[in-house]
Computed example of a mutant assay.
Amino acid sequence: MSTPTAPLQVAVLGAGAVGCFYGGMLARAGHRVTLIGRPQHVQVFEAQGLRMQTLAFDETVKLHASTEASAVAGADLVLFAVKSPDTETAGAQMREHLKPGALVLCLQNGVDNAERLRAVLTGVQVAAAVVYVATEMAGPGHLRHHGRGELVIEPSTASERVVQALAAAGVPTEISDNVRGALWAKLILNCAYNALSAVGRIPYGELVQQPGVQDTMRDVVAECRAVAAADGVTLPGDVDAAVRRIAETMPSQYSSTAQDLMRGKPSEIDHLNGHVVRRGEALGVPTPANRVLWAVVKLVEAATLR
């Protein structure tokens, strides 16, 4: 693949499944990419490269790697893909190393991460992005892609160049003036699928075939829509169709919440169903289905971490 402009210097802070997919696609297209992640992955990245096992190809991509946030130095574009609870800490760690004029693109679950990151990175360009990709780390340095890969990002002074680079790298990307609405639409998808996939430890295609699941998902989505409306959010497109499409386009995908719990790691449930519960309380909108899913995942998480 060729790049339409000069290659970008790219750093991926949080080189898990999402960060590795987009960083790997850019590296494969000729951009200089540094993945910043955990030692077990970084050791493989440095020695062998990133194995990208996708629906379209299975290749090992050579790139740079580090365990230190200071490796964002010199990057034109930082793909910020840490877990939601780590947003402020990771932002503070990289703040003094950012190149003037760098764009930080938030590739995180939840609806408020970009806002939280801006509070830490005063004066830095931070753009929210909505991520639609099904991926997992199948082992150290090994990314497995289950479907999709598109991004929706909010406008910034650097976004046109970034969109051009991503599109040329095979990542469908669009700029939207309603990223808040798109983030809420993605949040609704996560609230419908993530907790149930985690509790059942099953992928989406199998999940929707289980008794009572689709009715439960409808209740969750209805509550989310009511909270979004009370919060003044305009949801784009057909949310119900988007919910159905997830199981059709990502049938083999386990939710990120399921992957976290299956690996004995804390989940992001406080920033998914938990966020809807908190906003519902603040706005006077009942959210019993979301509250139950949030509470059940917290119980499973506590038992797993013990």
Rank of each mutant, 00 (worst) to 15 (best):
D112R: 10
W184K: 11
G147F: 05
D231N: 10
C106D: 13
L151T: 08
R225H: 00
A119Q: 09
P39T: 01
H64F: 09
L79I: 13
V239M: 04
A226S: 02
G147D: 07
A114F: 01
A303Y: 12
E68S: 09
V213A: 00
G237L: 09
G19F: 08
G237T: 13
D231Y: 11
A195L: 13
K265P: 11
N113L: 04
E160L: 14
T216V: 05
A102Q: 07
T173S: 12
G232R: 02
A134T: 00
A69P: 06
A114Y: 02
P286T: 07
H31L: 06
G74A: 05
T234G: 04
H97S: 09
W294E: 15
G181K: 13
A222V: 08
T34Y: 03
A11C: 08
G274I: 01
G30I: 01
T287D: 06
P266I: 03
R278W: 03
A228R: 01
M262R: 09
V124F: 02
I175G: 03
L166G: 09
V208S: 04
T173V: 13
A229T: 07
C20V: 08
P85F: 08
H145L: 05
M52Y: 06
Q40A: 11
V12F: 07
A65Y: 10
P172G: 12
D219M: 05
A226D: 01
Q164H: 14
Y22E: 09
L189T: 13
D270C: 01
